[in-house]
Design a protein around this nucleic acid. Structure first.
Lengths: 199, 199, 199, 199
DNA sequence: CATGAATGAGGGTTCATTCAT
DNA sequence: GATGAATGAACCCTCATTCAT
């Protein structure tokens, strides 16, 4: 009963795509509202699928997260293209780090899994991280060539720094200046005393 | 100390202290082995008490953590006393930040609750944070007086910076250089180009 | 019934049914032995399932209770059908109230949750109560039509009365006559003095 | 020791009395606010004593309850004296039952322990129950002598009936008429059809 | 494959009763 | 005797992950 043999509707495929898409959409919503640790169960329910279905599509939370971020990459890619046109390589680097930080605050708690992925081999988010490290490296190199950045700095360091700043920002709801100030420290260091001050 | 004089009334407690102490001891062990999110249930079992007893002594995980840290404060207080004798205030500040970072790696995942406590009013860990901010402020002030630190820096910024570095270190098992490098960035900034380099 | 026709997909469940059934069976046992406040934890253990499974099937004790009673409804429905054939509507009403009281003593302490459900909107037992009120109303109406019952009585009153009698019976282990006598009071009132007595 | 010789401060007694009194006072408050199943722990805390102290004074919840009721007995005794002066013994009985029901609603959930005490031998509340049964018996006997009450009724039956009505009232927050109607049933029975109706 | 349900562990909490002092 | 704390059981609930179908 209920669909007798003969023609096979091949529903699976269609359903599958629809499910996957609905899961992503709901995950986006829940992660935005409740952070990256939102209940996957709830996400599945909202998407109208069983938890096992979610699990099949995205074996880990990070896999789901990776997909969500992938979709956002379009935006930051555009931003990156724009920054590339900035004449001053030092300013460009700065703007790129800004862009990174904005990206990292897409969901509450996002820095955490990214940090973990950074050191885990087979993490679905690792690719995302590596991409960002590469891009950072590019902007950094340009700045270094122009004497706008310390030659000892590395792309991965600045990536981690941006991540750390975002991590601080994650909790500093009541303290908007802290992330900005940490950002300043990373740019200029706390040991630097301006010429005016030194006098 | 427990009073040896003649009549002794008001015996403080007895097995209460024993239990409390045993709980702390087991918590220390489990937190050390499995990070700050180790199962409290297991801690209680290891200490030979029911979960209700643990709950009575430490209503939240953070309360337990606060006690554990309290015990470590002796160590860092000694360290702080030592650092205070360092002649160069810039070096002293550096060493203090080192000490902080060591402290923050006492347990895996410790930076997280500390960061949260930093912005939560009624968190048992808040006091710990505030104390550290104050101490950092002292070392920083001295360095600023001597022109060894930027006058715009604040104690709380450096505290958060140390926390952030420890957070990075938390995951960077395979990458020992990253925290050190992040530390360097915070000290000197990535925009500083040494005179030698500039030439 | 479970469909025996040719191809059968959408097998309803399998171990789900088994678990549910086992839970109900064990609950029946434990509630019978220890009253409606028996430990649900124990019920779950006896049924060989985790408490979460029990929770999934029956989110509250009342939900579980409602199911157990549902199963008994077959019996009382049969009884009701039988009583409907009784010629004397006054006798029928009496027998129905007897049946109700028997039903209410299925488990020790049952009257309590039923009473509560009676005034709570979203209680799983509320439906059960309402059903009984309706049936009582039917028997009562018939009796009233035949002048065998006071026209001012309402079904819900008699339902509550039966519940109250059962509540008394719940504790009156050593005093078998009390419930019967209370029953008599409700039927005839304590102010009625028979003609013989009046003479 | 502590308080040497001579005059013995006999603090124990004084403290004990004060504690006992404070416990009763707080129990009254909490039972009034949250019913007879209010947390004894909380009562003890409110009274400024340890739970063990409460336990020593009142080994069971019922013992505590019995004391609280004892204090209220003054009131109902006065009421009883007043009712005794009522000329019509039927009216007097009615008023006494009213008084009983008021008494039973002193605390939410009071009917339950009273019912239990009624059949338990060594329950501190048993005396209270017995007293009430006796008083009810007196009023009932008078009414029976005057042909105002059925000679087959017994004091204990009416006592239980009043208890049952109060039990119903305990939950019938949203349904004020139910207890009154149940009361009516017990007085007149549902089988009585008035002469006017019979015609 | 998709799925609903099961699972097991943990969390936080409350409480009546009993111990150690 | 009075006390603060311990105890152990229970409750309700949540979740990530894994089965059975």
């Amino acid at each position: 009963m209920k669909s007798t043999d003969g023609v096979q509707y091949r529903r699976p495929r269609a359903d599958s795509e629809r499910n996957r898409s609905e899961i992503l959409s709901q995950a986006e919503k829940h992660f935005t509202d409740h952070g990256v640790n939102a209940s996957l169960e709830t996400v599945a329910r909202s998407a109208g699928v069983g938890s096992a279905t979610l699990y099949r599509h995205f074996p880990t939370r990070d896999a789901l997260l990776a997909e969500l971020l992938q979709r956002r990459n379009v935006r930051i890619d555009e931003e990156r293209a724009r920054i590339k046109t900035v004449a001053d390589s030092g300013v460009a680097l700065e703007q790129w780090l800004d862009a990174l930080e904005s990206y990292f605050t897409a969901f509450d708690g996002l820095p955490e899994p990214l940090r973990n992925a950074f050191v885990e081999e087979h993490n679905p988010l690792a690719l995302t991280c590596e991409g960002f490290v590469d891009y950072t490296e590019e902007f950094l190199s340009a700045a270094q060539r122009d004497g706008k950045a310390s030659p000892t700095a590395r792309g991965r360091d600045l990536f981690l720094a941006a991540l750390a700043v975002s991590w601080v920002r994650d909790a500093a709801l009541s303290d908007h200046s802290s992330p900005r100030r940490l950002r300043g420290l990373i740019a200029n260091g706390y040991t630097r005393v301006s010429a005016a001050e030194r006098s």
